[in-house]
């Protein structure tokens, strides 16, 4: 596999998530099939602008060449992507990285904790879990956002809350607007201890600001979870995605290739994380 394998993708649809976040449905221009797994990411961008690492927020559909990215405009590349219109083309490389451990979830209880846009890579994972619902035990989703306005994937959140085979806890730091969702006020960590999950049979999946993952992971460890039952998806600066540019290194790990999903115990042993 070569480090520089570009593909072209075209924007098919755009969905507003929040004032600052949009979801884009892309289709590959040249290839008929594009495969990826939940938790992996693309390096996506445009010549003259650069590239940014963006997770898949959708689940790959067998035989399809479509995928969704949910992007927050925070800098050069992402602000440029923010201005994309339907029909425009971008270049991407991918899929990269090791995603969520989908082989491990059979027969387990799942605790999914997301913060803000961190729900994006967990959304595809949740879709996968729901497709395989009968092979797993309890599923709990705890999703936190700063305000009601900052919650992404409103339609999915409502769908999940309406189902009886998944328990949902949605919380905001500030309840600033009426919402049709059942919301609670407080940080995600507040709700973790009340869950009726058997920690001995539960796997936890975390994505959000690293400081949030720190408090969630430590809370779970305190409850009795082992470090290798907790999975975290990390974000680092990345230029290549192929394990060469060195920016994403945490100790002996390349987040782009060995991650972005890690077992907590495997990554928290190194310096320079907030975990």
């Amino acid at each position: 596999m070569d480090s520089i394998d570009y593909q072209m993708a075209q924007v098919l649809d755009i969905q507003m998530e929040t004032a600052a976040i949009k979801s884009y449905l892309f289709t590959c221009v040249e290839s008929k099939i594009f495969r990826f797994s939940p938790g992996q990411f693309n390096m996506i961008g445009l010549p003259g602008v650069g590239e940014a690492a963006i997770s898949f927020s959708s689940l790959a559909i067998p035989g399809s060449n479509q995928f969704t990215h949910t992007i927050a405009g925070v800098g050069n590349v992402t602000r440029f992507l923010e201005r994309l219109e339907i029909g425009r083309r971008v270049l991407f490389r991918g899929p990269f990285g090791r995603g969520w451990p989908i082989e491990e979830i059979i027969g387990k209880d799942l605790l999914i904790v997301a913060g803000g846009i961190g729900l994006a890579p967990l959304r595809s994972f949740l879709f996968y879990c729901l497709e395989n619902r009968n092979r797993i035990r309890d599923v709990v989703l705890v999703y936190g956002a700063r305000t009601t306005d900052d919650m992404v994937f409103a339609k999915d959140l409502a769908d999940w809350q309406a189902r009886d085979d998944i328990e949902t806890i949605y919380c905001v730091d500030q309840y600033n607007k009426e919402s049709s969702l059942r919301l609670q006020v407080g940080l995600v960590t507040r709700f973790l201890e009340k869950l009726e999950l058997d920690y001995r049979n539960t796997l936890a999946f975390l994505c959000g600001p690293e400081i949030m993952m720190r408090f969630v992971a430590r809370n779970l460890l305190f409850q009795g979870y082992a470090g290798d039952q907790i999975y975290v998806s990390l974000e680092r600066r990345m230029r290549c995605g192929t394990g060469h540019c060195g920016h994403c290194q945490i100790g002996a790990k390349f987040v782009c290739q060995d991650g972005p999903v890690f077992q907590y115990s495997d990554i928290s042993r190194f310096a320079d994380t907030l975990l």
């Binding site: 650069g50 230029r239 290549c240 540019c245």
Partner: peptide
Amino acid sequence: FCYNQKDEIGFDLIHYERKRYWDSC
């Protein structure tokens, strides 16, 4: 081995080059 990347745009706005250069932790 670490590197950074930058894009250079030709004056014709048609040709683009992606360059990499040694970076440092």
